[in-house]
Nucleic acid binder design. Structure first.
Lengths: 144, 144
DNA sequence: CCCTTTCATTTGCATATACAAATAAATTTA
DNA sequence: TAAATTTATTTGTATATGCAAATGAAAGGG
């Protein structure tokens, strides 16, 4: 193994950023929800599983900054896909009827996306990789 | 395993994007090169290993769009870290003396970064994950 | 040798995203 | 209870990044 490979392949920052760009490109191609970029769909899904989730909790689950979550929710609210209920300093987010509908379409697209990359990467490899990334994020968020 | 975990954990788009944000946050904290964000250092490293690389080849190795590479090179050139040599429709990029110096400092920071995440994720796990991401990117770029 | 096609790069514009500062609500302290 | 501190969210501003259109250069066909 030459020097380049040692350095480039072993740096998680490099490999993860590059991979994220590649998979985002694929997700963009696969999903077709008009204005909604894939990351909004990720948020919709989390809200679906945690109706009334607080904004802070959303930030944690997505690993995004609070300001980003504000702007995401702004957009989703404008599209009438989620509702905000504010109480004191907390904001609770839930799906609207329309949001539920988008969620169900989205589930179908998710399968398509999985098939696209599984065809190239292999089904087991994809699942393993995904699981590792999930756990690594949780560990980093907890311990740093 | 509940429904949430099945869906969220198995989607590479979600897990990869989130992980990339987490590791970028860590890289930002670890690197301190004034104006230079970590992604510029990635580019510097690739140029170091491939002196006179074309812009197109750089785009491929970083998985970035051509427009992004133009702007990155603009900035690095302004900082006198790389040189452009244009010939016909090709542009060849190389490091300057100053660029070489930054590269060597950078290597030290890279070790630090590795230690930071290896402390949380484990050294072997980190290397495995990184290798998987590297190969997955190459496969996606080739086959899609 | 012009014209069309192709290819690499750049520019214009839009979005995701972050950080820092501002705001606003709740909690603690004196 | 009034003031200070903490916490959650929002706003201002800046950067990374992509796509689509524009530019500029080479290559091929007549």
């Amino acid at each position: 193994m030459n020097e380049e490979e040692q350095v480039l392949i072993h740096c998680l920052y490099f490999t993860a950023s590059r991979f994220a760009r590649n998979i985002t490109k694929l997700a963009d191609k696969t999903f077709d929800f008009g204005d909604l970029a894939p990351s909004y769909l990720y948020m919709i899904m989390i809200v679906k599983f945690h109706p009334g989730i607080t904004q802070k909790e959303l930030c944690h689950k997505l690993s995004i900054a609070p300001s980003t979550s504000t702007r995401f929710i702004d957009k989703l609210e404008k599209l009438k896909l989620v509702t905000r209920k504010m109480d004191g300093k907390l904001t609770f987010i839930s799906l609207t009827e329309e949001g539920e509908k988008v969620y169900h379409q989205f589930r179908v697209s998710l399968k398509e996306l999985f098939n696209s990359y599984a065809r190239v990467l292999g089904s087991e490899f994809s699942k393993d990789l995904s699981k590792m990334l999930h756990e690594a994020s949780n560990n980093l968020e907890r311990d740093l």
